[in-house]
Amino acid sequence: CHSECLGNCSQPDDPTKCVACRNFYLDGRCVETCPPPYYHFQDWRCVNFSFCQDLHHKCKNSRRQGCHQYVIHNNKCIPECPSGYTMNSSNLLCTPCLGPCPKVCHLLEGEKTIDSVTSAQELRGCTVINGSLIINIRGGNNLAAELEANLGLIEEISGYLKIRRSYALVSLSFFRKLRLIRGETLEIGNYSFYALDNQNLRQLWDWSKHNLTITQGKLFFHYNPKLCLSEIHKMEEVSGTKGRQERNDIALKTNGDQASCENELLKFSYIRTSFDKILLRWEPYWPPDFRDLLGFMLFYKEAPYQNVTEFDGQDACGSNSWTVVDIDPPLRSNDPKSQNHPGWLMRGLKPWTQYAIFVKTLVTFSDERRTYGAKSDIIYVQTDATNPSVPLDPISVSNSSSQIILKWKPPSDPNGNITHYLVFWERQAEDSELFELDYCLKGLKLPSRTWSPPFESEDSQKHNQSEYEDSAGECCSCPKTDSQILKELEESSFRKTFEDYLHNVVFVPRKT
């Protein structure tokens, strides 16, 4: 048989008469490798580009789960590009990614509803959504962080984005990388972005840091009482949809009607710091009717980097990364020049730590249904340095008659930039024990000054392991946590139920 035959053949030295091919099969003959313009397919066939392209389009058009959109890589027609490569849609070739590779997620039936953290986790790592997304989240724990972890990498949506009755959302900033909504599939009414009845939605994105392009379709905003109209108009300008909307697409009466839409800028007039305090004062603000001013709200939190936005980490279910302080308005003076500047002394802060701070007014709604208010920009203030805590785990070892090696770990709280350490030492008198000992005694162990690591005695271990207080009263049991108490109650309830079950099964009433 021919060298490319495997198993047997019907005619000697003829690659077209093989029972099976050793390498690849091409047009009725066995070959060692697939010549151009053919590609290896499933490690035994040679196919042309049209064959591989037909497989790709067949799966793409069917949208069946589990099928493969075949691509070409290293002269092979394979189910998908290997790690580190992405497909070129024009020629199906796998090309190296520039940075992290995109991950295209194809949605069944063309859309997916995100109504819980669990459903959001199914899209973790996706960068391109081939379909439409509907966000409908009523509640949950730590929602802002969970949504950002699972949806934060999405850069492109081919269909539309719909935010509907998501009472738990305060902001859409968890879509931190969303840059493009194509609108290839539109919501009824030709809408590519749809926001309806979101009672706590206050911000779409921080438009000073976020760009969003909507290729096709219109915007729809109705019944978002805490979303200011200025935020919607800003989205029109940034996304390129200005002029597409009709009169009733953006409701003037049901958007922002319960919001404090600040239209003035508060400026800080005085800032002073110490290692654990920050004193702030800002310019006074009074609405047209000074009785509408209820006070100020001061927001602050630790910020290692200057990239904080107002609604980071917030949701309507209680999660809030900001510390909020309510401040009463100052006494009002008739003389504008003698107006008191409101302020606040922030206490209990960490030394040498940068804080993000902003302040906003708290006002009631005027009778004319106009909203007044003022808010400052987010500023960054760093507390002063102070003395560091003591170095940890000092170790001293003498390696000769004239040297001592000293080692330690950095302090747990540096409280500033540590530039150097101060080492103090003092000579001590020799131990009298060394002169009084009889060095001729056998088995004498000389006193040693070398360091030995501390260890816990058996008594201390027994005390720590004991669940009861000892007789001397030195140790006591740790208080039980809520989960331990709940577990004990469940076990007790189970024992009672099981005992009742045994009584009912074992003891049967005697027939009379």
Score class of each variant (00 low, 15 high):
residue 106 H to R: 04
residue 107 L to K: 03
residue 110 G to T: 06
residue 118 T to V: 05
residue 119 S to Y: 09
residue 121 Q to T: 09
residue 123 L to T: 03
residue 126 C to Y: 02
residue 132 S to H: 05
residue 142 N to S: 12
residue 142 N to L: 11
residue 151 L to P: 00
residue 153 L to E: 15
residue 155 E to S: 10
residue 155 E to Q: 06
residue 156 E to A: 05
residue 157 I to E: 00
residue 161 L to N: 00
residue 163 I to F: 10
residue 166 S to K: 00
residue 169 L to T: 09
residue 169 L to A: 12
residue 169 L to Y: 04
residue 173 S to L: 09
residue 173 S to Y: 10
residue 176 R to N: 05
residue 183 G to Y: 02
residue 186 L to Y: 06
residue 187 E to T: 08
residue 189 G to E: 13
residue 191 Y to V: 05
residue 193 F to G: 00
residue 195 A to E: 00
residue 196 L to C: 08
residue 199 Q to N: 09
residue 211 N to T: 11
residue 216 Q to F: 12
residue 217 G to C: 08
residue 223 Y to A: 04
residue 224 N to Q: 08
residue 224 N to K: 00
residue 231 E to R: 10
residue 232 I to C: 08
residue 234 K to E: 14
residue 234 K to V: 13
residue 235 M to W: 03
residue 235 M to F: 04
residue 239 S to V: 14
residue 245 Q to L: 06
residue 251 A to E: 07
residue 253 K to N: 09
residue 255 N to W: 04
residue 255 N to H: 03
residue 258 Q to S: 14
residue 261 C to V: 04
residue 263 N to E: 15
residue 271 I to K: 14
residue 271 I to L: 07
residue 273 T to Y: 07
residue 275 F to S: 14
residue 276 D to V: 01
residue 277 K to G: 15
residue 279 L to I: 05
residue 288 P to S: 11
residue 290 F to N: 15
residue 293 L to V: 05
residue 293 L to N: 07
residue 294 L to S: 10
residue 295 G to I: 03
residue 295 G to K: 14
residue 296 F to N: 04
residue 303 A to T: 13
residue 317 C to N: 10
residue 319 S to L: 12
residue 322 W to G: 02
residue 330 P to M: 05
residue 333 S to F: 01
residue 338 S to V: 13
residue 341 H to M: 06
residue 342 P to V: 12
residue 343 G to F: 03
residue 346 M to R: 01
residue 347 R to Q: 09
residue 349 L to H: 00
residue 352 W to T: 11
residue 353 T to F: 04
residue 354 Q to V: 06
residue 354 Q to T: 05
residue 355 Y to T: 00
residue 362 L to C: 02
residue 363 V to T: 08
residue 370 R to N: 15
residue 373 G to I: 03
residue 384 D to G: 14
residue 387 N to G: 08
residue 394 P to D: 05
residue 398 S to Y: 10
residue 399 N to W: 08
residue 402 S to T: 14
residue 403 Q to K: 14
residue 406 L to V: 15
